[in-house]
Amino acid sequence: MGLEDKLFGVHGKALELRSQRLNLLASNIANASTPGYKARDIDFEAALNEATNKGTDAKQAMKGAMGYRIPLQPTLDGNTVELSTEQTLFAENAVKYSTTLSFLEGRLNTITRALRGE
């Protein structure tokens, strides 16, 4: 266990995974009109479990938990990006990133206060 894991607990890894997932969902939205593009996403819980319990780095955990999105309706050009799904997940992921960030900030404040000895 590295120092940052001791300081930040699950939140350090969670933030990293959230940021990677943000990239993934942005890619899906960017390719919304590319014929034949297959949307991808990760199982966040599985990735976080792998990163925290087995201590693998975020990149490896991402790879293990990645899969293709199953579209609600097939399209003629083979594109599986459904903007309603992707945008909802993107928004949700952004909010959760913010939440994780405030948890981290809380930890940081605690440690700073302890160091100051006030």
Binding site: S27, T34, R40, M66
Partner: peptide, 14 residues
């Protein structure tokens, strides 16, 4: 004609 450009798995632009 659009084509996706993949960087690493899952991360792609157009």
């Amino acid at each position: 004609v659009f084509r996706s450009v993949t960087d690493k798995p899952g991360v792609a632009t157009v």
